[in-house]
Simulated assay, not measured.
Amino acid sequence: MAFIDYYKILGIEKNATENEIKKAYRKLARKYHPDLNPNDKNTEKKFKEINEANEVLSHKENRKKYDKYGKDWEHAEHFEKAEKQQQYQRNTQQSNYYNFSGGDYSDFFESMFGGRASRQKSGSVKFRGHDYNAELNLNLDDVYKTHKRTLTVNSKNIRLTIPAGVKNGQIIKIKGHGGEGINGGPKGDLIIKFSINNNTKFKLDKNNLYTTVDLDLYKALLGGDLTIDTFDGKVKLKIKPETQNGTKIKLKGKGFPIYKKEGSFGDLYITYQIVIPTKLTQKEKKLFTELSKLRML
């Protein structure tokens, strides 16, 4: 049985890091995936070689054994053969995307790593279904409260619960709602990206809300009550006499809901913007003039 250079198959150096091995594998697996190259026997063979190489090099103990014996791998069976095979059977992991079964590993792999231990009885190659990707467009006030929504994906209706506090650009995965698997393989997943449009007068930063409220000059000078809108209703505020333009206050717990923390909210920050009266009457001008004279005394 000929020696197989797994490093060459993945196009990496022998001193490649775990991350470099993972990146090389994922890149090649996407390129040679059977779904993208239907009825191409050469591509299918290449795809199996790539997965076999990853099965060895991504597994610390297997890679150590492979690096140690190299082309003389056949002598490895004389060194703790039984123990090594049992350890591999316990610890071996499935490839990142697919499971392989009877007849899919090379003789080199089987002799060196006990490949038959991870085979399925069916003798057919099982492939995981591909993922579906969808974008869900919502308004900010849509995600202030948890609610249910029905999505139509690939002609199928899927009932979703949208948690309160979902953020713009956030991605969630719904397991098993993607494409059908091949030869009894598992279904892919539905991956949803949220696009949240802020259709409100509030600015959202993390879980805090920010807004500016107009305050008339007289109330700013003399104080009084002011009713404002928050995300979940109106609130009456007490305005202190001589409130300055740009004054900021915080309403604790009146911000945006915190994702997956029911009953927890950020804060609402309000900035007062004093509105100067316009189109003054002659009487108003006279009174302001008298007031200004008093201030100069």
Results as ranks from 00 to 15, higher is better:
Met1Tyr: 03
Met1Pro: 01
Phe3Gly: 00
Ile4Ser: 06
Tyr6Lys: 09
Tyr6Pro: 04
Tyr7Arg: 06
Lys14Asn: 10
Ile21Asp: 05
Ile21Asn: 04
Ile21Ser: 06
Lys23Gly: 00
Ala29Gln: 09
Pro34Val: 08
Pro38Ile: 02
Asn39Ile: 09
Asp40Val: 02
Asn42Glu: 14
Asn42Ser: 11
Lys46Phe: 08
Lys48Pro: 00
Glu49Tyr: 10
Glu55Phe: 12
Lys60Pro: 01
Glu61Asn: 13
Asn62Glu: 08
Arg63Ala: 10
Lys65Ser: 14
Tyr69Leu: 08
Tyr69Lys: 12
Lys71Ala: 12
Glu74Phe: 11
Glu77Ile: 14
His78Arg: 15
Glu80Asp: 15
Gln85Cys: 04
Gln87Ala: 13
Arg90Asn: 08
Thr92Ser: 15
Thr92Trp: 15
Gln93Ile: 06
Gln93Trp: 10
Gln94Gly: 13
Asn96Val: 07
Phe100Pro: 12
Phe108Lys: 13
Phe109Asp: 04
Phe113Ile: 00
Gly114Trp: 09
Lys121Glu: 12
Ser122Asn: 15
Val125Ile: 14
Val125Lys: 11
Arg128Ala: 06
His130Met: 10
Leu136Lys: 07
Asn139Met: 04
Asp142Ile: 03
Lys148Thr: 12
Thr150Met: 05
Thr150Cys: 02
Val153Lys: 14
Lys156Gln: 11
Lys156Trp: 01
Ala164Ser: 08
Ala164Cys: 01
Ala164Phe: 01
Gly165Thr: 01
Val166Ser: 10
Gly178Glu: 07
Ile182Cys: 05
Pro186Phe: 02
Lys193Trp: 02
Lys193Thr: 09
Lys193Arg: 14
Ser195Val: 15
Ser195Thr: 15
Asn199Cys: 07
Lys206Arg: 15
Lys206Val: 12
Asn208Pro: 04
Thr211Asp: 03
Thr211Lys: 04
Asp216Leu: 07
Leu217Gly: 03
Lys219Asp: 13
Ala220Ile: 10
Gly224Ser: 08
Asp225Asn: 14
Thr227Gly: 02
Asp229Cys: 00
Thr230Ala: 08
Val235Ile: 12
Ile239His: 07
Pro241Arg: 13
Thr243Gln: 07
Thr247Pro: 01
Thr247His: 13
Lys248Ser: 09
Ile249Tyr: 04
Ile249Glu: 05
Leu251Val: 09
Gly253Thr: 02
Gly255Leu: 00
Pro257Asp: 06
Gly263Asp: 15
Phe265Trp: 12
Asp267Ala: 04
Tyr269His: 09
Ile270Asp: 02
Ile274Ala: 07
Thr278Ser: 08
Thr281Gly: 03
Glu284Leu: 09
Glu284Met: 13
Glu284Ala: 14
Glu284Phe: 04
Lys285Pro: 05
Lys286Thr: 01
Leu287Phe: 02
Phe288Gly: 03
Phe288Asp: 09
Thr289Asp: 13
Lys293His: 11
Leu294Pro: 02
Arg295Thr: 08
Met296Asp: 13
